[in-house]
């Protein structure tokens, strides 16, 4: 009886060990992506934790995935949409979400002009449509390929490219027109 119990626990531990080995290398990038979407460190951590918790029992499926990094980001994105974007349908008003947890990092090599430009860019990103912003964040900020972005967002590569082009045009327009003129301290 006890041997049987030990075997069950060992099997679970083995499954958990496999899970840890599989997802560990991707957690930081998942967190970074979650942060880019939620604009909050706490929410990003909660989101990643929730996704991981939902995947613990799906080790075999994870092992069969060819490119696990983008696949995990795809799961993360779906969860983000479920939790954050669809909740706008509820009477809970989420208008305070974006930009509440603005993160500023000052490196010694940064000059003020660069910092100012970055802040202006962050604010310009918030002016983009969500669909365009998602693509810019995945492709230009995080460096996923157009094919990977198409996989994550479940759209065609052509759509990714055209939206990316239009998003960049709009970003440049906002930045050059000086739509955002004020600079705030962090």
């Amino acid at each position: 009886m006890s041997a049987w119990l030990i075997q069950i626990f060992q099997r679970r531990r083995c499954r958990e060990d496999r899970f840890v080995a599989l997802v560990s290398p991707h957690i930081r990038r998942m967190h970074r992506m979650a942060y880019r979407w939620t604009a909050s460190q706490v929410e990003a951590e909660d989101l990643v934790q929730e996704v991981l918790a939902s995947l613990v029992s799906r080790v075999a499926e994870l092992e069969a995935v060819e490119k696990l990094g983008p696949w995990l980001v795809k799961v993360l994105y779906r969860r983000f949409v479920d939790l954050y974007r669809r909740r706008r349908l509820s009477p809970i008003d989420q208008s305070v979400a974006w930009g509440d947890d603005e993160y500023c990092e000052v490196n010694s090599g940064d000059d003020f002009r660069q910092l100012d430009l970055r802040r202006a860019l962050e604010r310009a990103l918030r002016l983009l449509d969500e669909d365009w912003r998602d693509i810019v964040l995945l492709h230009d900020v995080e460096g996923y390929t157009a094919i990977e972005v198409a996989e994550v967002l479940e759209i065609s590569v052509g759509t990714v490219k055209s939206r990316l082009h239009r998003a960049r045009q709009k970003l440049k327009k906002i930045l050059t027109q000086g739509t955002i003129e004020t600079s705030r301290a962090c």
Binding site: R118, E122, D140, R168, L175
Partner: peptide, 13 residues
């Protein structure tokens, strides 16, 4: 623009 976007900071746990 892409070079600038790549420098957007994110908190490193």
């Amino acid at each position: 623009l892409v070079a600038l976007l790549r420098t957007l900071p994110a908190p490193e746990p």
